[in-house]
Amino acid sequence: MEGVSYQRFPKIKIREVRDDYMKFELRETDASIANALRRVMIAEVPTIAIDLVEIEVNSSVLNDEFIAHRLGLVPLTSERAMGMRFSRDCDACDGDGQCEYCSVEFHLRAKCINDQTLDVTSKDLYSSDHTVVPVDFSDSSSSFENSENKGIIIVKLRRGQELILRAIARKGIGKDHAKWSPAATVTFMYEPEIYINEELMESLTLEEKREFVESSPTPVFKLDENTYQVEINDAEAYTYDEEVIKKAESMGKPGLVEIRAKEDSFIFTVESTGAVKASQLFLNAIDVLKQKLDAVRLSADTVEADEQFGELGAHMRGG
């Protein structure tokens, strides 16, 4: 039976890529692959996040654990994460999670010395590794008029208040804690296929056509103002709500439009937190999924044990 293969060859078409956003079409595969990729992007692609905080001085209004929690949620640039070690299986530091192979150290030191409230932000975190730093959102959102780099606010200090701490960032996955998830949102939808029964459509009055177009909560159809024909405006705006189908039935015209979900075509939207680029996130997800598949391969000794005892073994076990 060697040489038989049930492999598929999926196709991809990218519609839009930005650093933190990507939209693409995935075709000629099934929902299980699409969903596995989505699940892996959300919960299993590793990133780096602050995991341990030692507070030296904290006279701010927020308590220590509150600040530690906020620090954990700050996204850090994690291009290095795929090649890094998890602290729990790092030999160099016996799982302490304090060595260069599995951790990055941060320092924060801030004191308010005047009457103006001091904002302590992610910009005040000093990293021991220049490749792992708090994500900078300033250039991607240059539409704001004040281009001053602000960072993410951690706490606000009034006169005399002080915050000094040391933080250890480690590699982790979203399954462990959501702070390690590199994905803001990852969604996919079936590509809709819409057929308009032109003959039946022509039997509608102009008023009915208008009513039909307006029955959809999203702008799926439009009425051409010159030819008075119902046309497809945006098929992908359809949310599978079936409102237009119900409308056609209530008008006594069942089968006016037929909408099907193409079960092998998916439209993906990936939004990243900035820890890794959206395009890299997808590539990392493929790698992680491949590693997972590799881990579930049968080990040589299970195969051997089965060959040795085979049917007999099964009968003996079964009694």
Binding site: S5, Q7, R8, F9, P10, T29, I33, F282, L289, K290
Partner: peptide, 14 residues
């Protein structure tokens, strides 16, 4: 094996 090859193909295609 088939899934592994499919993911290889997907990676190259992407």
């Amino acid at each position: 094996n088939d899934l592994d090859k499919e993911l290889d193909h997907l990676k190259n295609a992407f």
